[in-house]
């Protein structure tokens, strides 16, 4: 077994799904070998950057790469959108972090992904399929233009329900509409897994609660180290407090205090907004053609609820 490289993680592929969503494939053979569905990595784009957690959207053990799908919403992710090209490197990639999702032993499951959760639900759907389960995929996008990986999902889902805000693809409505359809059609769903913005996961948990369908959600709170050392990612699960990085990131959606999670996600909003504005300003000064639009603040996070 080879010893991992301590720096310079090469980007070997990139794809852009929309003006804010893009995919990076990063070479890291050991990580590709170790990664399991439900785990995440922490990335630093450059030496002065911040550490951001990103769920592993795919891994290819033969090619020795992992795939990350990123939404450019803040300073760091927009900077990555600008700078990360094929052949460039990331300063730090560490993982796989978190307890892998518990997969297996269920006959029929629903995998729900919305917004930034579409990509990370993919390895879950694939792993469930490989475990022999009947997999129903429910994916949420704003419109047809933004749909990606439909073929990848079709390859591992027995049924796929697309939901769009405007009805331009699949059914019109949020992912919760898709879940309702699935539950109406299948009385024997044994588990639902949802990944997406907190408000979406909350909606999913509420949709399954009356039917008593076990529901797992993957939480992505603010983190620094990702190894249990800072406690920044603590979340309320029922009566207890857990650290999402080492006790999760998967938790029972019926026990998660989503309001608490959402309030805590906004705690560095002022600083994040300042960083983004400065970044946009510096792009303009440099006369960068790819400069991001100066309007978007963090309040306008795109595609929030599928």
């Amino acid at each position: 077994m080879n010893v991992p490289q301590s720096s310079s993680f090469e980007i070997v592929a990139r794809a852009d799904f929309s003006d804010v969503t893009f995919l990076l494939e990063v070479r890291h053979p050991m990580l590709a070998k170790a990664a399991k569905a439900g785990q995440f990595v922490i990335v630093m784009e450059h030496e002065q950057g911040e550490r951001i957690p990103l769920t592993i959207a795919d891994f290819d053990r033969d090619a020795g790469t992992i795939t990350l799908v990123i939404q450019a919403v803040g300073k760091t992710t927009r900077e990555m959108q600008q700078n990360c090209r094929v052949g460039t490197t990331l300063f730090a990639v560490v993982g796989p972090m978190g307890i892998p999702s518990h997969i297996g032993g269920k006959k029929k499951v629903v995998c729900v992904g919305g917004g930034l959760g579409v990509a990370p639900i993919f390895p879950q759907a694939r792993a469930w399929k490989e475990s022999g389960a009947y997999v129903i995929g429910v994916l949420g996008f704003r419109n047809r233009e933004l749909v990606f990986w439909e073929d990848k999902f079709r390859a591992c889902c027995d049924e796929l329900i697309l939901c769009t805000d405007d009805g331009s693809a699949g059914i019109k409505g949020l992912v919760t509409e898709g879940i309702k359809q699935a539950i109406a059609k299948h009385a024997d769903i044994e588990e639902l897994v949802a990944i997406g913005p907190p408000i979406m996961m909350k909606g999913c948990a509420e949709a399954t609660r009356p039917h008593k369908i076990p529901t797992m959600v993957s939480l992505n709170p603010v983190m620094v180290d990702g190894t249990g050392m800072c406690g920044g990612c603590r979340v309320k699960i029922g009566e207890t407090v857990k650290f999402a990085c080492v006790d999760g990131p998967d938790f029972d959606g019926h026990l998660v205090d989503f309001d608490d999670l959402m309030a805590r996600l906004g705690r560095y909003k002022t600083a994040e907004k300042e960083a983004l504005e400065r970044f946009q300003e510096s792009c303009r000064i440099r006369g960068d053609e790819n400069a991001p639009e100066p309007v978007a603040a963090l309040d306008d996070r795109p595609s929030t609820d599928g």
Partner: peptide, 12 residues
């Protein structure tokens, strides 16, 4: 030799 960005337990 120092190898950073290596989470022992999870990476290996």
């Amino acid at each position: 030799r120092f190898e950073c960005n290596t989470l022992v337990g999870r990476l290996f």
